[in-house]
């Protein structure tokens, strides 16, 4: 791998790493999700520094040229990532549904003329916001 390529891609990988770390630091990215992105960035760095590793894997899976190995695993990785997002979305969908139902049920309870309003305690005096 020519030195010019190495420097170019290393720069990109390092910037990616810094962006991820900054996102975590600002709490924009949850820590438990960040390891995946950190691992991705570090893999890129590793592939740049140890091109022979890529060639070795290429021989291992029986591919002809290293670029196809790279593209194959990149696409596989992205596909698994979307699958992971689908699972998370399914979870979130169910949670949002449960929450929406709960909100609606609680609102029905608190505003309902069907329940005895006398049973409700009077509002406590409002404390001044500090």
């Amino acid at each position: 791998m020519p030195i010019r390529q190495k420097i170019f891609f290393l720069t990109i990988a390092v910037v990616l790493l810094l962006v991820i770390l900054e996102l975590v630091r600002r709490r924009r990215l949850r820590v438990e999700y960040s390891w995946l992105w950190l691992a991705s960035a570090l893999t890129i760095v590793l592939m740049i520094l140890r091109y022979d590793l890529l060639i070795w894997i290429t021989g291992l899976v029986g591919a002809v040229i290293p670029t196809s190995t790279l593209f194959f695993f990149s696409i596989l990785y992205l596909a698994l990532l979307s699958l992971n997002y689908s699972v998370r979305l399914s979870d979130l969908t169910r949670q949002v549904k449960e929450l929406a139902q709960e909100v609606a049920l609680l609102r029905a309870e608190s505003s309902s003329s069907w329940e005895a309003p006398a049973a409700r305690p009077p509002d406590p005096p409002r404390a001044s916001a500090k």
Binding site: K97, A100, Q101, V103, A104, L105, R107, A108, S112, W114
Partner: peptide, 17 residues
């Protein structure tokens, strides 16, 4: 009596509520 879902959830979820 009224249970008012905050947004559209779909038939099954409405029945469930």
């Amino acid at each position: 009596r009224l249970v008012e879902l905050p947004f559209h959830l779909g038939y099954g979820a409405a029945v469930q509520a």
